[in-house]
């Protein structure tokens, strides 16, 4: 007990040193493992569509932004407990998430999820790999006859399919496009499935002003067409636009 308080006191000292500068910083939380939306580039920095988008939004809103990465599993709990101010991590707008956080308007149109497999696979009765805790995993549990195989990262779902552990992968189509393009034997199969209401930034419910600010910035990017240009640049020609 004593140690905890001592530690807290020591920390309080550190923190008050740091408060010397007082321009406010908005901290953007992302996963850093979901290309092309967000990933860590060769230099070890956050990169990708959302990096470009987030920087542009901050510029328009005249905010000082900082990027932080956080594990996907605890990305919402860390937001609501105040460890960063916004999530911008390829997060689809779903009713369940909306109960806990507030989303901006979507900055990508509802984009389809797709199955990828090596060779032709009959999806009813197939073993389908998906990332734990995603809307895709939830979708597979509802498919008749299909068996869900869950992995902690999207990388591992693809690796499992390559290794023959799973017959197919269900993931965001935007994530799978580079995978399919970069490989000779992986292809899309079946029909695309629309899941989720597009991707939006998530904010604490108690923080409506910040949400409004970013919402307005997204709107302005939609209005002058820069958002569409950015989607083409980062997500490809085939990705749906506004």
């Amino acid at each position: 007990m004593k140690h905890i308080i001592l530690g807290a006191a020591a920390l309080a000292v550190c923190a008050s040193f740091a408060s010397a500068q007082d321009d406010s910083v908005v901290r953007l939380g992302t996963e850093g493992a979901y290309p092309p939306y967000n990933f860590i580039n060769d230099a070890g920095e956050v990169d990708g569509f959302e990096r470009a988008l987030g920087d542009e939004l901050c510029k328009r809103a005249e905010l000082n932004c900082e990027w932080v990465t956080n594990d996907w599993d605890s990305i919402i709990p860390n937001l609501v407990s105040g460890n960063y101010d916004a999530i911008i991590a390829g997060m689809s707008i779903t009713p369940e998430r909306e109960e806990v956080v507030d989303f901006t308007q979507n900055y990508t149109p509802p984009s389809p999820s797709a199955f990828a497999a090596m060779g032709d696979v009959d999806l009813s009765g197939a073993v389908i790999a998906a990332q734990t805790g995603t809307i895709q995993a939830a979708h597979v549990t509802g498919m008749d006859g299909a068996t869900l195989l869950e992995y902690p990262t999207p990388d591992e779902t693809v690796a499992a399919m390559r290794a023959g552990e799973a017959d197919a992968v269900l993931s965001d189509k935007d994530y799978l496009i580079p995978v399919v393009e970069g490989s000779d034997d992986i292809q899309f199969i079946g029909e695309d499935i629309p899941l989720g209401g597009g991707i939006g930034m998530a904010f604490r419910k108690s923080d409506p002003e910040l949400r409004e600010t970013f919402d307005a910035a997204i709107q302005s990017m939609k209005d002058d067409g820069t958002l569409n240009e950015m989607i083409i640049e980062h997500l490809g020609e085939d990705s749906p636009r506004f």
Partner: peptide, 12 residues
Amino acid sequence: KLPLGNAPQWVH
């Protein structure tokens, strides 16, 4: 807030 919202990244 711990650290303060405007603290630099290294403090976080």
